[in-house]
Design a protein around this nucleic acid. Structure first.
Lengths: 343, 343
DNA sequence: CTGAAAGCGCTTACAG
DNA sequence: CTGAAAGCGCTTACAG
């Protein structure tokens, strides 16, 4: 069927070893043989077969990404960083999409077994520490993104700190009834962000008013949807005692929340979380996660680990940065549309 | 290092052939051997190595996706469909991200050579027909998404028709100065959409006013950005003779265009193209591309082709569907915010 | 600089 | 139901 190293060798009158050497850039090949082989290879349209190479070398030159939700901004931007960093390397990229509904551990386990990758990037998958420990038995390089375990290299953002700082910003600015739009509680980042929100209030000597922590009813994607944010903000805006500021669990929800404010004509200052590409464009204040950088850094950690499996485990925790834009602008909120720039 | 079929065979006191048969669900294995092997395999944590299987079977059980821009809504939603459809099959998914800046053909060619996939899904890559023809020589199943060639199965949307119908809607509604926000001309969908816009006007016996076809200056992603749409709409809104309606090349640009209208306080009815998830939420009227379905259908075509390489080439061209929402709502546009629902 | 040969871990007729 | 053996297409010491 397809041409192999044997065909080239026969045509060139050399052994397959020599042909192989040419394609492995081994320098111990005479210029004469090299050009002859290359010419024939080109004519016959030869290219090495990755699977055979992989088997012989015991290396697949493959990196696998395991992720629960493909169609979301966080993943997209992280993926962009991953691709960027992988660009120059010889590694190909595999994607496994696991379902949040089924048994997550089983799926991760399966993906790793199934995969022939030299390393795995696991994004936004939250397992128990003992589950991570047992994954350790596969003895394969793994880097965690948006998750932490003592067992593996990781790149994440401090959600608690981010939520704390967002809330604290409002406190410092003198806001009194600071609400929070949360999401599905089972999600770890959601838990952390609620946590940070609470602590900020407590540290300021305030009571946490549970009724000010609301989520929409949409449970899709753990509640990280525009719809959920819309619903949540609607609940807040219906309160007799209106909140005067709001920290929102994610930008995508914040976009929904903004729409709710538009639809009702009542605006309160809002800070989101993520800094997806749309946020800057829309003037949404937010706690920035450096998603692209998280992707590139995760790849570089993984590549290092592949090169040196016994290196010390390394964790990078980014501090989310408060990006102040028009959605926290008093003037804007009082007098005009939240999405407009200040005149 | 890792456990192989030999380890299992030795432990179980059988040949490797029998072990292999167990994992291939061959029924010609005694229940006794089967359970024994399975037990040992489980204890040793054995799992077949995909590369070795691939080499022996001459099948990789891999599908590759080749795409220029990962971080965009169209790709995300198509990818979701692809994953969905691939979910039940035994195929894994590989992603190759090619750069729009370099020589595209070379990159596609390289990706296919490099890849060990059994089939390729090529998304939004636009080549000359003769280039597609030469790719045919690889003799590997390929399905095109958002592109057409007589050589390969394809799934696309009729951009010309979509643009025609959007423009025609405005004509029918009595609008006089219908503008179009385009993008980089080198992009095939952009060309097609301009084409459709033109034809609709011509068929209605109108002159095409070239100055009403504008693009923003942002050239990133061929101009498919919020920023580009914003800039383009700004140009339109600065005209002494304001357009009274606008067809926009893509939803992501339309979102930018809407913001431009908000910032200036001048609103004109707008129809986008794509129907990304944000559009419904924002009430943006648009020509809908069924992106998810395009993904699932492309996979099913590819799988069919893998099963039957000589089947007749099949093309599916979806007609974009006009989704009327508030951005084309006269009332909305005249009196209130374009992004708000009609009361 | 080059070749013969073993090996990577599996599958699959073939023969029994 | 099972095993011996050839083969998938390459890499890589080893010896020269």
């Amino acid at each position: 069927m397809s041409v192999t190293i044997y065909d080239i060798a026969k045509e060139a009158g050399v052994s397959i070893a020599t042909v192989s050497r040419v394609f492995n850039n081994s320098n111990s090949v005479s210029e004469k043989s090299r050009t002859k082989i290359l010419t024939i290879a080109k004519r016959l349209g030869y290219h090495p077969q990755a699977m055979a190479q992989g088997l012989a070398r015991k290396k697949s030159k493959l990196i696998s990404v395991i992720v629960p939700v493909i169609s979301n901004h966080f993943f997209m931007e992280v993926l962009e960083g991953i691709q960027d960093e992988l660009g120059d390397s010889q590694y190909d990229l595999n994607i496994y999409n696991i379902k949040l509904t089924d048994d997550i551990y089983e799926q991760v386990d399966y993906s790793i077994k199934r995969g022939m990758a030299e390393g795995y990037l696991i994004i936004s998958v939250h397992l128990l520490e003992k589950q991570w420990k047992s994954l350790k038995n596969f003895n394969v390089p793994i880097t965690l993104i948006d998750e932490f375990s003592t067992e593996f290299d990781s790149v994440s953002v401090d959600s608690i700190e981010g939520a704390y700082n967002a809330t604290n910003y409002f406190i410092t600015e003198g806001y009194q009834r600071i609400a929070m739009i949360s999401a599905q509680n089972r999600s770890k980042p959601v838990k952390d962000r609620i946590n940070g929100y609470r602590r900020a209030l407590e540290d300021a000597g305030r009571f946490v008013q549970e009724e000010l922590i609301v989520s929409g009813d949409d449970e899709d994607r753990d509640g990280f949807t525009e719809k959920n944010g819309y619903q949540a903000m609607m609940k807040l805006l219906k309160m007799k005692d209106l909140p005067d500021a709001c920290f929102c669990n994610s930008d995508i929800q914040a976009i929904g929340a903004v729409k709710a404010m538009q639809d009702t004509g009542r605006f309160i200052p809002l800070i989101g979380f993520d800094d997806i590409q749309l946020s800057e464009f829309f003037g949404l204040s937010t706690m920035r996660q450096p998603m692209r950088e998280m992707g590139t850094m995760a790849v570089s950690k993984l590549l290092k680990r592949i090169g040196n499996p016994d290196a010390k485990v390394s964790h990078t925790v980014f501090s989310p940065e408060l990006m102040l834009r028009s959605s926290t602008d008093e003037q804007t909120n009082k007098h005009t549309h939240i999405l407009e720039k200040r005149a």
